[in-house]
């Protein structure tokens, strides 16, 4: 792609872009805080609300590598099979939510806060067509 084309893209009016977005059926599903993750592989099926995981809150306290290297969370929404039994045994969220580093697994209400019906995914706009899209 030439620079000229990129520039032309840049001057498209907002209206045209809005139209393009609408016609592509590409509207953000929710206006959540950037990088919020909904985990709902099993939760709702098992009768509890989906889980909302806020990246912004955790990255103030932990670098990415704590979760994505040390604790082994794969960087792809939906690719970690998180069960409540794992959490209670100290894996995944339970590595910290154990009443030592952070409050414990008995605080169901603090994690299961998602809107019913929301699919697993990364929210907050600017998403790519990428991994979080399924």
């Amino acid at each position: 792609m030439s620079r000229r084309r990129a520039t032309r893209l840049g001057v498209l009016g907002p209206a045209a872009l809005l139209f393009a977005a609408a016609s592509l059926d590409f509207v953000p599903h929710a206006a959540a805080e950037y990088a919020d993750v909904v985990l709902n592989k099993r939760a709702e099926r098992e009768g509890v609300r989906p889980v909302v995981f806020p990246h912004w809150f955790h990255r103030i306290r932990f670098r990415c590598k704590v979760c994505h290297s040390e604790l082994g969370f794969k960087m792809r929404v939906g690719s970690n099979d998180v069960l409540m039994s794992d959490i209670i045994d100290g894996r995944f969220c339970g590595a910290c939510h154990n009443n030592q580093i952070a409050w414990g697994p008995e605080r169901c209400d603090l994690c299961h806060t998602g809107k019913p019906g929301l699919p697993s995914g990364i929210y907050g706009g600017h998403e790519t067509g990428g991994p979080g899209r399924w």
């Binding site: 498209l12 872009l17 393009a20 977005a21 590409f26 600017h126």
Partner: peptide
């Protein structure tokens, strides 16, 4: 398709 993808990203930015 590259142009379309970039267009989408920019469109989304406008909406946001």
């Amino acid at each position: 398709s590259l142009r379309r993808s970039i267009g989408r990203v920019l469109a989304l930015a406008t909406i946001t």
